[in-house]
């Protein structure tokens, strides 16, 4: 039951997405009361940075090998450009910690712009001290890397876009 302008809502959500993008935030939830029976609930989440644990401290970038990752994961406003729905998305087969390189300080498996062949190891996901070498699901060029080195990932989370 919205009596106020939809355009104003859109502008408000856009502003929230901008705040999310320019700060080290992963989620913003806001409730706006306009009048009785007229309110807006918004939750904006950075989907590329899915977190499995409650972070006690703000996320810090790992010192090594982070150069290949985008400094800030792109913010995603619900309904638009979800990387998980991208046909070139490589998604996580499991819950764990994702790594860009075999070990700290080592050369990353891939960087944005690299050409990869299907089956080539592009990242590692660790769970239960099992290092799972994750292969490229298709041949192509690495267009986006959607996680930071050493960050937790959920099952099904988009990790890379290869097209």
């Amino acid at each position: 039951m919205s009596k106020h302008s939809t355009d104003a809502d859109v502008a408000f959500i856009k502003a929230l997405a901008e705040i999310l993008n320019t700060n080290e935030l992963t989620e913003i939830s806001v409730k706006r009361d306009y009048a009785e029976d007229d309110s807006l609930d918004v939750r904006v989440v950075k989907q590329a940075n899915v977190v499995t644990m409650t972070q006690a401290a703000p996320m810090m970038a790992a010192p090594a090998a982070v150069a290949a990752a985008p400094a800030h994961a792109p913010a995603v406003v619900a309904g638009s450009d979800d990387p998980a729905q991208h046909p070139g998305a490589l998604t996580s087969p499991m819950v764990g910690t994702a790594y860009l390189a075999a070990e700290p300080g080592a050369k990353p498996f891939v960087a944005i712009g690299d050409k990869v062949t299907e089956g080539q190891t592009v990242l590692i996901i660790e769970a239960m001290k099992t290092m799972n070498h994750i292969p490229a699901n298709r041949a192509g060029t690495v267009k986006r890397i959607l996680f930071e080195d050493g960050s937790p990932v959920e099952f099904g989370a988009p990790l890379m876009i290869i097209e």
Partner: peptide
Amino acid sequence: GILLESTGAGGQI
């Protein structure tokens, strides 16, 4: 100590 390493494709090891 134990270290496990896997290779796989399409969610299968």
